[in-house]
Amino acid sequence: MTGLILKDLMTIKRQIKTQAFVLTFFLITSIFMQQSLILFTIIIFIVTFQTITALTYDEQSSWDKYANTLPISKGDIVLSKYILSILLMLFGLILALPIVFFIHRFNNWASAEFFLTFNLLVTLALCMLALLLPIYIKFGSIKGRMVLIAICFIPGFFSGLISKQLPDIHLVLINIKQYIFLAPFGGLFILWLSSLISTAIYKHKEF
């Protein structure tokens, strides 16, 4: 397991270095605009989704064909991607939080509001990973993108059709605001369920 995570980190090292330029640009922009939320969102999503980059590199080289000749269980191969994504997210948070607090030394953004945003963003990132990883593991990066578009488009289309019957999203958010601190744990639970689905998918794959 540690070997697989190490291999993925070595694989995406260069990619992360490249992304550092993009992050630097957004860092400067956010400091000047006093807008830490954009920076925070970008750091969390760019860093966390490097797992998808690692999956794409694996796919391009038919890595799974080789990895499955090694004494590594299929469960470990899948789980390593989930652990990698959580590690990357933690790295992203460690990177982003000091910068966000630094920017807010110069304005008076309420800490409660930041806490709400922080929880929502982390939960959103975890839920997106929970959706993306099984799709990419099942279909690969090219087909996976198509499936992802279909999955996002179809519910969006139908919710648009029945939007009048749906409760007001703002009211829902206000009602659940007091429970928002639980949201990242919910996200982690969904990610765990997703890992079980991905493992089941992977065990049925042939290489």
Partner: peptide
């Protein structure tokens, strides 16, 4: 050993 080396090419 396969007919090619199946490891990520950035390694």
């Amino acid at each position: 050993v396969f007919d090619d080396l199946h490891v990520p090419e950035t390694l």
